[in-house]
């Protein structure tokens, strides 16, 4: 990313986006090939495994091998796979069900989970960070510092079980599994999924606010006699939130990894749970399809964040 302070003519942002999009292609292909190679380079015959105890006739077996391109070398299998992918064909699993159907059925669950997690990050993380940052070394600042260290250290699976036990089994406030109670059943897994990032957002906001509180323009605003609240909300906060927004944006892609664990423990039928089940069952097509999608999200939100950076901070220009 080259950043300069010179104002450039219209269209430089468009060119920047185009160049970035071009750079994402090898990353997307590389990441999906990596998973593809791991899943499909497996010794053992998936068709034989599929057939189980009843032996298939040679003709049926050959037809199935043909259908799944199993006789081609690995790279050719991958080229054929990508070719299909560009036509919107994610392939089928070994039971003949289109992978795209599975994805479309399960994606909304993960989207809701991620949305709830992001909401927690913004609501709790930013507020805690602001309160800590405006009074650095105060009591609340220390509370935030200690609690974020503790929260970052708790692995997601530990937090999941503790919250299931305390809020689900003991207090009976939240359902501990499934999506039976609509959005309400996403609250607990969403909070668990958000925990690590939430602590990071609080720290980031705190540092950013504390740094900006000493800036010249804040002193100027105070010198003008503006009330404290206006200085903080209108002047400090707006500038301080730029790194926070970029972190949260990039985090959407990262949440996908955590979703595997959270959805498995809370029994949510999203793509994270689906990819875990498929890895165990060695459903190669589903694994590669979902991982490709996850990588796509990751790349997309990172690009959005980089562009947003320029929109939020006019000092930054891309050329």
């Amino acid at each position: 990313m080259r950043v300069s302070c010179v104002l450039t003519e219209e269209g430089s942002l468009g060119r920047y986006i185009a160049r970035r999009l071009l750079l994402t292609v090898p990353v997307l292909l590389g990441a999906s090939f990596l998973i593809f190679a791991m899943v499909y380079a497996l010794p053992g015959d998936p068709i034989r495994a599929l057939a189980g105890d009843r032996p298939l006739s040679a003709a049926v077996m050959a037809q199935l091998r043909e259908d799944f391109n199993l006789d081609d070398p690995l790279w050719l299998q991958y080229v054929k796979y990508v070719g299909d992918l560009f036509q919107g064909d994610f392939g089928t699993d070994f039971r003949g069900r289109p992978v795209l159907d599975t994805i479309l059925l399960r994606l909304p669950v993960t989207a809701k989970l991620a949305a709830v997690a992001i909401a927690f990050e913004i609501l709790i993380g930013v507020i805690a960070g602001v309160l800590a940052g405006i009074r650095r070394n105060g009591f609340f600042d220390n509370v935030v510092l200690v609690s974020t260290t503790v929260i970052v250290s708790i692995p997601i699976l530990v937090l999941a079980f503790i919250s299931q036990y305390v809020f689900g089994l003991q207090l009976g406030l939240f359902p501990i599994a499934g999506t039976t109670e609509g959005l309400y059943s996403y609250l607990l897994p969403g909070l668990v999924l958000a925990s690590g990032s939430l602590a990071y957002v609080a720290r980031l906001t705190r540092t950013s606010i504390a740094e900006n509180m000493r800036a010249d323009y804040v002193r100027t605003a105070r010198a003008k006699g503006l009330p404290n609240k206006t200085v903080i909300v209108r002047h400090t906060l707006r500038n301080s939130l730029i790194p926070v927004v970029t972190f949260i944006g990039a985090d959407i892609g990262t949440l996908m990894g955590g979703a595997i664990v959270t959805e498995t423990i809370f029994n949510l039928p999203g793509i994270g749970r689906s990819v875990f089940d498929s890895v165990r069952a060695q459903e190669g097509a589903v694994v590669v399809g979902i991982v490709t999608l996850m990588v796509l999200f990751f790349i997309f939100f990172n690009l959005v964040v980089d562009v947003l950076y320029a929109v939020l901070d006019p000092r930054i220009r891309y050329d």
Binding site: L28, M38, V39, G253, G257, V291, F298
Partner: peptide
């Protein structure tokens, strides 16, 4: 671009 848990899980 691949989450740590996901890559390690498959491998």
């Amino acid at each position: 671009a691949l989450p740590l848990i996901l890559g390690a899980l498959v491998l």
